[in-house]
């Protein structure tokens, strides 16, 4: 198929960006979306032009690096997958595809379609862990965990940290990302011990970094490539409220 691509080009964080139109021909429906961009880039390089920069790595939907806003939707038109898992059979011959970077204040553009998501790491560093050291740990089966809780924790833990939830949200809220981590640990006995501190620290960091508030539109859940449930946000709100009421220490 032949396509017109309308791609956001921006030389650096400080430079002014703009859309540039490109034509690509004879793209197979079997190719992945990123392979289509590879083909474009190889043709640009052959012409001596600078290729389009975009983040990508594993190309199987698990590393969370790829991050394109395609025709107005994070990770494109299909549900439950990342950009790298999307195939060109989702598009039609002759179509124009608009490709933009994530647009959110806490994710500044680095170049073209690449954005800086280090704010997510900062939130995890603020409390997204269980404070155990290496070694001296009791046997793994010494604390049984109800299967249901383990499964719910796993649902939450499957977040890949791509940032689609923030990109999808009109408020650029990071609630789905933060609540997924808070929930994973809140559901497990290992994480309960620090639960009250953790939720306060992570929420404080999230606010400090400029992420917006949640206004319950659930756009985050709809666009999440791992289909993480917005019910995690409700769980985080309960955790946060009870921590504020009951915790020995405020953060």
């Amino acid at each position: 198929m032949d396509l017109t691509l309308k791609i956001w080009r921006q030389a650096s964080a400080k430079a002014k960006g703009h859309f540039v139109n490109y034509q690509v021909q004879n793209i197979s429906a079997e190719a992945s979306f990123l392979e289509m961009l590879d083909i474009l880039n190889e043709s640009l390089v052959a012409k001596g032009e600078e290729p389009v920069a975009f983040d990508h790595d594993c190309r199987e939907g698990i590393c969370g690096a790829c991050s394109l806003y395609i025709n107005g939707r994070p990770h494109g038109p299909d549900r439950g997958i990342t950009t790298c898992q999307m195939h060109m059979r989702n598009f039609k011959h002759g179509e124009t595809i608009i490709i933009e970077p994530w647009r959110a204040k806490p994710f500044p553009v680095i170049k073209d379609l690449m954005v800086d998501r280090s704010s997510f790491d900062e939130i995890i560093q603020a409390g997204g862990f269980v404070s155990v050291r290496t070694g001296g740990i009791p046997d793994a089966n010494s604390i049984p965990i109800p299967r249901r809780n383990a499964e719910l924790a796993m649902d939450a833990a499957s977040c890949i940290g791509c940032g689609a939830c923030v990109a999808a949200c009109k408020n650029a809220s990071a609630m789905l990302f933060v609540s997924a981590k808070v929930s994973q640990f809140a559901l497990l006995p290992q994480g309960r011990i620090e639960a009250q501190e953790r939720v306060q620290r992570m929420v404080a960091k999230m606010d400090e970094l400029g992420f917006g508030n949640c206004t319950n539109t659930y756009a985050c859940e709809a666009e999440c490539p791992k289909e993480i449930s917005a019910s995690n946000i409700a769980r985080m709100n309960r955790e946060f409220l009870s921590a504020k009421l009951l915790a020995h220490k405020e953060f």
Binding site: F129, V130, V132, T134, G135, I137, P138, D139, A140, P144, I145, R147, A150, E151, A153, M154, A157, Q184, F185, L188, Q190, G191
Partner: peptide, 12 residues
Amino acid sequence: DQCVAQGVPFAR
């Protein structure tokens, strides 16, 4: 043991 203590949600 280490991973379970870190909160890794292994299958149960």
